[in-house]
């Protein structure tokens, strides 16, 4: 069974049809890239799945459960991890504290008062930092990290909810080529070992065609292609969109 199933999502703003009956699904261990020119509806689609925007019609199912219209907080507790286009972490806390906080939130333990938080879930936080190769930086303030490290910290925090689905909005934006490929290789490893489904949007084609298992293409709110990177690359409709024969160029 697929982890995420999106069924016939539609959304319009005023007269503009941002999404028009879009359906797709992601399975455990799979990396699915969502691409398309600017204004194709990527962000709208992404933000409906993560709970930030409400769809006009259509369903979002997580492990078969209907979660259409759930708030971002509920989505998190339902097992959806997220990373943002501009990485979001808790700047005034150390790397370890960042992950501990995310773990405490996931276990509904933030209202605990009895013990100092620094001692709680420490080993688990360190295990997550180990997985994202951030263990050496555990005591550094998050605000002082290099951007590539901030991204990996964010990934560790996204994993704290033990998610089944990881949503990544342009995961490699603002990173150099080497860092970009290293991060995606890490995400791929994590997806394989933890059976995670990963849905990401991306602008750099080397990341999309180098790391995605499957690619879906949106244009003017419609899904125009869904297949392996090779199939999508060979699809004439996709070439049309990207090479601008119909004026939909980026």
């Amino acid at each position: 069974m697929s982890v995420l199933a999106v069924e016939a999502l539609s959304k319009s703003y005023g007269g503009v049809q941002a999404l028009d009956g879009v359906s797709f699904s992601v399975s455990a261990g799979e990396l699915l890239a969502l691409i398309g020119p600017n204004g194709a509806g990527k962000s709208t689609c992404f933000n409906i799945v993560n709970g930030q925007i409400r769809a006009d019609s259509g369903r979002v199912r997580l492990n078969g459960r209907d979660v259409t219209g759930a708030s971002p907080r509920r989505m998190a507790l339902e097992g959806v991890g997220r990373s943002f286009q501009v990485a979001q972490v808790f700047g005034s806390m150390t790397v370890r504290e960042n992950v501990q906080t995310a773990l405490l939130a996931a276990r509904h333990r933030l209202l605990g008062f009895l013990r100092p938080a620094a001692t709680l879930l420490r080993a688990e936080a360190e295990a997550l930092l180990e997985q994202t190769r951030m263990a050496a930086r555990a005591d550094e303030p998050a605000a002082a990290l290099a951007y590539g490290d901030v991204k990996r910290l964010e990934l560790a925090m996204a994993l704290a909810t033990a998610p089944r689905l990881l949503l990544m909005d342009e995961p490699t934006a603002g990173m150099g080529v080497e860092e970009r490929l290293a991060l995606m290789a890490l995400v791929r490893d994590l997806a394989r070992t933890n059976g995670l489904a990963v849905l990401f949007t991306e602008h750099s084609m080397d990341v999309v065609f180098g790391h995605a298992d499957r690619v879906i293409v949106l244009a003017r709110g419609r899904l125009i292609a869904d297949g392996t990177p090779q199939q999508v690359r060979a699809d004439p409709k996709v070439a049309d969109i990207y090479l601008g024969r119909r004026g939909g160029a980026e």
């Binding site: 993560n50 708030s71 971002p72 907080r73 998190a76 507790l77 991890g81 997220r82 943002f84 979001q88 972490v89 808790f90 700047g91 005034s92 806390m93 504290e97 960042n98 501990q100 906080t101 995310a102 405490l104 939130a105 996931a106 333990r109 933030l110 209202l111 605990g112 008062f113 009895l114 013990r115 100092p116 938080a117 620094a118 709680l120 964010e154 925090m157 996204a158 704290a160 909810t161």
Partner: peptide, 24 residues
């Protein structure tokens, strides 16, 4: 320094991340 304080500081630093981590 309690979990409550951690959550509070987290929400101050990044409300977006806090929501996405399930912090109330």
């Amino acid at each position: 320094f309690s979990p409550f304080g951690y959550g509070l500081r987290a929400a101050r630093d990044s409300a977006m991340r806090a929501e996405a981590s399930g912090i109330p």
